[in-house]
Design a protein around this nucleic acid. Structure first.
Length: 341
DNA sequence: AATTCAGTCAACCGCCCAGGT
DNA sequence: TACCTGGGCGGTTGACTGAAT
């Protein structure tokens, strides 16, 4: 099985994308949508394979990307989700608006993994390292995640600071903002797991992970394979949702990301997925004085800049150079068809 | 100033899965 | 039912960059 890597007979370009290629791809998708990815390169006049175009779009050109530094809340959420899902980067990223699976994966591998190890936690199992070793060398697939993970405790004991108190210690009752819903199937491996201070008595899903007034992270119940009783919570970071939003204007898309979703018969939660740049700005405002957020703001890259400016001035994006970063790769895009967003 | 090293991140590769024929 | 194709995902690689020596 398995297909050949893209390329085939044609000699296709590989490696880093040039600004010109980005422009071609962006203009094409803005005008026509991506449709069938394999036809995109031809239609867009690119000597790339469809896969490469898709990846470039999803990981870099997509207008809803947040970029910039991960916030403490995002980091906490990633750790929690990883303890439940393992290396399901796409599912984890789906709960982090504006983040891509690649970004989350890189962040995990380059930063969180190391941080957990330094704290004596096996990043694969979320157990103490010595315990993980006894358990049989720690199996790197995360399949043995079900016994004990104390990320909340870890975070509380290590980061101090603003975000820590938003996570309950394992012995503390959860704040009201934590809402759990029972799921019917496929969550058995979560049995007896300590999650944010609650020990479930069986199937468990963390349906809302609300930590700060300015930040709400969501666990897509479907992403947790928690059965049909759970509702799907839209996430603007998922590519499927992005596709569905392709027909919306930015304003409409922003509006569309504010939804009310019924989780089960007892619980109703209101999601408030602001667009990424707005969210980051909100977090920053809510966390004034927190250097972490200040740093995050400082590291805003082109997408944040571009969309901030465009939305706030009711302008279509891409009138501004999209490469607002230090690489100084100014490119201007054709604004036609942006009503499609 | 030059070199080495480590960290980050964009991109590719190979596999799996779903849908169509 | 078997095969084919496209989309998607996770793992890995390699270029780039900044810090350390």
């Amino acid at each position: 099985m398995g297909k050949r890597a893209c390329g085939g007979k044609r000699k296709l370009r590989r490696g880093l994308w040039s600004p010109e290629e980005d422009e071609k791809l962006m203009n094409h998708i803005v005008k026509y949508g991506h449709g069938c990815w394999s036809s995109v390169p031809k239609l867009a006049g690119l000597e790339r394979c469809g896969k490469s175009c898709r990846l470039r779009w999803i990981n870099y050109l997509r207008p809803d990307l947040k970029r910039g530094a991960f916030s403490q809340e995002e980091e906490d959420l990633i750790i929690h989700l990883h303890s439940m899902l393992g290396n399901k980067w796409s599912q984890i990223a789906a709960q982090l608006p504006g983040r891509t699976d690649n970004e989350v994966k890189n962040f995990w591998n380059s930063y969180i993994k190391k941080k957990l190890r330094q704290r004596g936690i096996d990043p694969a199992t979320h157990k103490p390292l010595d315990e993980a070793a006894v358990a049989g060398g720690g199996g790197g697939d995360g399949s043995n995640r079900t016994a004990v993970f104390r990320d909340a405790e870890l975070i509380l004991s290590t980061i101090g600071g603003a975000a820590a108190h938003h996570l309950p210690a394992p012995h503390m009752p959860p704040p009201e903002s934590y809402m759990y819903s029972r799921c019917s199937t496929e969550c058995d491996d979560a049995a007896d797991v300590v999650v944010g201070g609650c020990i479930s008595d069986g199937s468990l899903s963390l349906s809302e992970y609300s930590q700060t007034p300015g930040f709400t992270g969501y666990v897509d119940a479907d992403a947790l394979h928690c059965g049909p009783a759970s509702a799907v919570i839209p996430s603007v970071s998922s590519s499927s949702t992005l596709n569905s939003m392709a027909g919306l204007s930015p304003g409409a898309a922003a509006a569309a990301t504010t939804t009310t979703t019924t989780i089960d018969e007892q619980s109703t939660i209101t999601t408030n997925h602001d667009l990424p740049f707005l969210e980051l700005g909100t977090m920053s405002a809510a966390s004034a004085g927190n250097d972490h957020y200040a740093a995050a703001l400082d590291e805003l890259k082109w997408s944040d800049y571009m969309f901030d400016v465009c939305y706030s001035h009711q302008l279509p994006p891409y009138h501004h150079g999209i490469y607002g970063d230090s690489k100084d790769r100014a490119v201007h895009f054709d604004a036609h068809g942006l009503g499609n967003w």
